[in-house]
Design a binder for these strands. Structure first.
Lengths: 243, 243
DNA sequence: ACGGTGAGTAACAGCGCGTAACGACGCCGG
DNA sequence: CCGGCGTCGTTACGCGCTGTTACTCACCGT
């Protein structure tokens, strides 16, 4: 509580390093040799699972975009992430007995079902798998903490910039264009995720567009200057450029 | 995107169920038989580890209270949690090569150091241990998502109420009094964690005190009516009782 | 053509922030 | 023992960002 800031820690969490897809090391082919995996298709709008259902399996996203959200009995709801290809879904529910969140497909998805107790057995048989699973969980934790930082320290415009930057990086990591992509989620979903209202998200997008940093046409996003977008997301440039 | 709310999921995350200490099943005694564990004392104000340092070990909190925070190069900082006895610290850094957050002791702590690669080996030798570790990580994920929900959907007064409620429940889980305890962290730490400013935290505490729900004397908290506190944290009672 | 959903815009209001000043406590040296 | 000093906590006040409300438009399937 006294003197503890000798050398400022100051470490950037993972503006890009979080993108390394852990399931790279999650070898589905090898996993399917150890257990019965189920390939499943989910249409846009349908649930992969709902909060409260008995926990049976993890899901590896093979294609498509999803939305994960928590809800309370009194009607509050919070979007906690938008999983996409290469990510492991359902890990947050391990050990709870039942799923604790809702996961909905934003468009047509293809997911691979991994029955859970069997996953642990497979880990015991394949030591590397255990490390990969643990790592995937830890990365999710880092991701959550990164967004806590973002939501706790940035204003509305900066949050939206950070959101777009994150989406761009994840698209690039999947081989898609990082400068031109389509939002799979509604403004309301984005707003919930960023702890804002959808009008504020719209305003922020308009600001960024007016500043020439991006171009918006409904759900279609073009990033004109990734560098300026990054400065908005991390620094305080927008305070000037959107004034 | 069409009709997806047939039966509202509406599931309470864990107003109390999150309290089950996962490390209950993390048998330190058995672990120490598998690997060399190190007992360490940390004085209040000192770091357990700093962001950027090479990742070497997890830490099991045996006594004391800690603060975990992320920081960025441009000076932003966010407190992401207050670990206490029975919790596992450092898991968020697994697989990253270096620690990604700062962990500081709020008072004198006693922690048990668990060298990391060795933990994985121990898991391989003791299958139950792997499940316990995975479960601990998953619980951390649920906890983070619970706070995302809290910060994203509640106003300042409600957030502070939820914070106190959480602290009370965790104190009770450790055998301490849930209705009378001492805050180990400053208003600034609380504010950072709740994505508020410290003056707002003070105001919220004053509001709760004026409503007769709690009594505040600097860092000493007495909860007069846990039920009303819970309603403030989850519902919208305070909008009325603090007006 | 029609209704429904999602998106954009504007005017207004309110919560929470920023600043400031004061008080309480602890630490230290005189 | 006392006074200075710094940190932490509290309260007041004005303002700005964001939420609120309302309306219009674009799109889409019926």
């Amino acid at each position: 509580m006294t003197a503890m800031t000798a050398t400022t820690p100051a470490f950037v969490p993972f503006p890009a390093s979080m993108l390394r897809l852990v399931p790279d090391s999650l070898d589905i082919a090898a996993l399917s040799a150890q257990m019965t995996v189920l390939r499943r298709r989910v249409r846009g709008g349908q649930h992969v699972y709902r909060a409260g259902q008995p926990f049976r399996a993890l899901f590896f996203v093979h294609a498509g975009f999803l939305r994960r959200s928590v809800a309370t009995a009194d009607g509050r709801e919070q979007v906690t992430g938008f999983p996409m290809r290469g990510e492991l879904v359902g890990v947050e529910s391990i050990g709870s007995g039942h799923y604790t969140v809702d996961v909905v497909a934003l468009d047509d998805c293809e997911i691979i079902e991994l029955p859970y107790p069997a996953v642990l057995d497979a880990c015991a048989a394949m030591p590397t798998l255990q490390g990969a699973l643990t790592q995937a969980l830890a990365q999710e934790l880092r991701r959550d903490q990164y967004w806590m930082l973002t939501l706790g320290t940035l204003n509305a415009d900066q949050r939206v910039a950070a959101f777009l930057q994150d989406l761009a990086a994840r698209h690039r990591a999947l081989g898609f264009s990082a400068s031109h992509f389509v939002l799979r989620m509604s403004r309301i979903d984005i707003a919930s995720f960023l702890a804002l209202k959808h009008e504020t998200v719209t305003r922020a997008l308009s600001h960024l567009a007016a500043a020439g940093i991006i171009a918006v046409e409904r759900r279609e996003i073009r990033i004109a200057c990734a560098e300026r977008l990054g400065r908005c997301a991390g620094g305080a440039e927008l305070a000037r450029c959107a004034a």
